[in-house]
Amino acid sequence: MTPSSTRTVLICSGKGGVGKTTLTANLGIALASQGVRTAVLDADFGLRNLDLLLGLENRIVYTAQEVLAGSCRLEQAMVKHKQEPNLALLPAGNPRMLEWLQPEDMQKIVELIKPHFDIVLIDAPAGIEGGFQNAAAAAEEAIVVTTPEVSAVRDADRVIGLLNTRQVEPIQLVLNRVRPKMMASQEMLGVTDVTDILALPLLGLVFEDEQVIVSTNRGEPLTLNGSQSPAALAYRNVARRLQGEEVPLPDPTKQRRGLRATVRQLMQTKIF
């Protein structure tokens, strides 16, 4: 293996539905638009969705499966994004691949991709079993996605433990679906609660944002069209921090809020 400066980043969480695929799609587009040649690899062979979130589902001809079988070249399988040509997707193959896929297969795929890109984002499946282990074997560093909920944080902790034994490094945290009002009234785990417990540096903070759903409906990631919605800004900042830029993190408890929230906050103050 020749040494390469291409970064390979696993995007994982343990728990399903916390926002891994959404992050992969938005971060991929954001990085690409910042001039980084970005490959996104759908390693969730059982429940593939990355193609759909990127709006590329109709352009898939070949997948990782044909690449591994040697029945097509990598360039034929990689789907380039039309509006953001710095981004390409390697789609997951048939779910039956799960039966035979080995960690070495994922490593082989990633080694094939690396020479053509600056960064490879690997969208991991939920869980900590085979599918996750395969994906993890191909990555040097990781982003753990979690939400401020006990089950998601506990599962993230399990995953971090496994990444540590694999010597994946650095591991950084993205806290997703943050609801500032609930955090301000201490009805949601705070940012430092989560970072203290998991002991990871915070790479990004993404608020709960309806626009995320709208954008997935359309198959156009929020970071694609200059959207200024909170999640779009957050994903772009994750991309910048991942490249080493220092971008301040927002404080969810100090968001501008309406009168109701202010009154509620006042009422939280213990007076007896």
Binding site: R154, S185, E187, G190, I197
Partner: peptide
């Protein structure tokens, strides 16, 4: 506050 409860429960588990 439920966030405080959540934090303590997580630390234990």
């Amino acid at each position: 506050a439920s966030a405080t409860t959540a934090k303590h429960r997580l630390q234990l588990v």
